[in-house]
């Protein structure tokens, strides 16, 4: 099959690749770019492990034809830690046991990352709704909800500290 030359914007960087039109974004991320943080749990959109953020919205990369997403900003789990420093949400997961086997975690974190972008202090119901397409077999979701609370509290404390710094 003929490959197409595509230009994908992933985690703020442009990647020029030759890709067959029948390859999913998940395949291209994992195989061509070796961004293996995004996981394949079912390959048929039933589990959420392959969730990435496309133009600010969580989507399942196992469903997307890579060549169709050249005009989009794609964000994967690898983008969330900056210079080796975890984001608040990731720290919440580590501290509260939100990740056990870790296989659903990247997708779960990407879904929650978009939630926190739009909702600074989500209720537990909102958290559960946001991850209702991401199956976790380990945690029963309790510790994931705690991880989000942990992150929200940490972000708020940081904001307060920031304000105090400005006032001082």
């Amino acid at each position: 099959m003929r490959k197409e030359l595509v230009d994908l914007s992933i985690n703020g960087r442009r990647h020029e690749l030759a890709v067959e039109p029948n390859r999913t974004l998940l395949d291209v991320l994992r195989e061509d770019l070796r961004l293996t943080g995004t996981k394949c749990g079912c390959d048929d959109s039933s589990c959420g492990a392959c969730t990435v953020v496309v133009d600010g919205q969580p989507m399942l990369s196992c469903l997307l034809l890579a060549v169709s997403y050249q005009d989009s900003q794609i964000q994967t789990i690898e983008s969330l830690a900056t210079q080796g420093e975890l984001g608040a949400l990731q720290r919440g997961f580590v501290q509260e046991g939100g990740s056990q086997c870790g296989f659903c975690t990247p997708g779960m974190v990407m879904s929650l990352h978009t939630l926190l972008e739009s909702t600074a202090d989500p209720t537990e119901e909102e958290v559960r709704a946001a991850i209702s397409g991401n199956i976790c077999r380990c945690t029963g979701y309790m510790q994931i909800c705690r991880a989000v609370r942990h992150a929200v509290a940490e972000i708020r404390e940081e904001e307060i500290r920031e304000k105090e710094r400005l006032h001082a």
């Binding site: 293996t36 394949c40 690898e78 975890l86 974190v109």
Partner: peptide, 19 residues
């Protein structure tokens, strides 16, 4: 205490066999 490789797991850096 967090998992030994907890940070790697939440960053997509833990290496599973299929990776």
């Amino acid at each position: 205490a967090p998992m030994l490789d907890g940070k790697a797991r939440v960053s997509g850096l833990a290496v599973y066999t299929a990776d």
